[in-house]
């Protein structure tokens, strides 16, 4: 198999997921090759990093490629794919990869599977992915090649160095981008940095209503911690944006992460899985959060939290 891996970088740093794509490519290439593609204005330093893990690195350079746009990424990738004929194109399942990969697939008339966590090439190309926010899994067969797979971060971390060559692809965009990059906007900063907290009481949609945030605050105060939340809690405006844990919020590693009424969707878990101690309270015994928690309680949080508060008050009072 000839496996293409489209690299991603931002703010001067290669996304580690780009190397993970190559790890996967090296696992499945058989007697084929793992080939990274890195697109931009001046990508030499990324190419060097990638070359450690790739048989070949294709550099696609042009001034108009300085900032990512899906239009031009797809334009140059189509040219390169047409010429080099890879069997599989791997892309990171990120804000960037998740955007241009389906576009590329449609233009190639190629099957695509997104957010893939396992790939099997023993009999055609098969990919496994989750459905229903992590509650089900499906094995899919992609019926033809070339095919496009976007890969979940953190799954293919293990790999060995290969040491390949860097080649200028000699490809230029064939047109101007309709979409223009304007600027990056930094995250808002609030008065509390949850990433610095030792103890986090985190609430999800299970907290049900803004008025119940108080309950979490009381518990957090007694524990000497701070309150954070999952995305729906922030989307609803119950907590400020800088309290959001997860892929589009903050990554936290506290000594204690108490997850109350959080289902454990991947995008949330990526922001808290490295916490030293994770305790989850959820009324659904099948909630995926119990897959990352060290201790789990299947219960209504409105039964357990008041009890905890009472007992902590007793301890403090004594």
């Amino acid at each position: 198999m000839k496996v293409f891996c489209v690299a991603e970088y931002r703010f001067d740093e290669l996304n580690p997921l780009s190397i993970e794509l190559l790890n996967l490519a090296n696992q499945i290439k058989g007697d084929g090759s793992s080939e990274a593609v890195v697109i931009g204005k001046d990508v030499g330093k990324y190419a060097e990093e990638l070359a450690k893990y790739a048989d070949k690195v294709w550099k696609v350079e042009d001034d108009s490629l300085e900032n990512y746009t899906p239009d031009l990424y797809v334009d140059v990738l189509l040219q390169l794919i047409e010429r080099e004929k890879p069997d599989i194109i791997l892309v990171g399942n990120t804000a960037q990869g998740g955007e241009f990969a389906p576009y590329l697939a449609a233009k190639l008339n190629a099957p695509i599977a997104t957010d893939v966590v396992a790939v099997d090439v023993s009999d055609g190309v098969k990919a496994s992915r989750y459905l229903m926010q992590g509650k089900l899994m499906v094995d899919l067969k992609l019926k033809s090649t070339p095919c496009v797979l976007t890969i979940r971060q953190g799954v293919f971390k293990e790999g060995t160095e290969v040491g390949g060559e860097i080649v200028d692809a000699g490809i230029k965009p064939s047109r101007e981008s309709k979409r223009k990059f304007v600027s990056y906007i930094e995250p808002e900063v609030g008065e509390v940095d949850i990433a610095q907290a030792d103890i986090i009481v985190s609430v999800g949609r299970g907290i049900e209503d803004e008025s119940n945030i108080e309950l979490a605050e009381e518990l957090a105060d007694l524990l000497g911690g701070v309150v954070a939340g999952s995305r729906p809690v922030i989307d609803n405006g119950w907590l400020p944006k800088d309290r959001q844990v997860g892929i589009s919020g903050k990554v936290v590693k506290p000594k204690l992460y108490l997850a109350l009424g959080i289902s454990g969707a991947f995008q949330h878990v990526m922001g808290m899985k490295d916490s030293e101690l994770i305790i989850a309270v959820n009324k659904d015994p099948e909630a995926p959060i119990f897959g990352v928690a060290h201790y789990g309680v299947v219960a209504d949080l409105f039964d357990v939290v008041p009890e905890l508060i009472e007992k902590l008050k007793e301890i403090k009072g004594a």
Binding site: A95, V182, K250
Partner: peptide, 12 residues
């Protein structure tokens, strides 16, 4: 929306 709370402004 990008990762880590960053945003990207684009014009179409």
């Amino acid at each position: 929306e990008l990762e880590g709370g960053y945003l990207e402004e684009v014009e179409l």
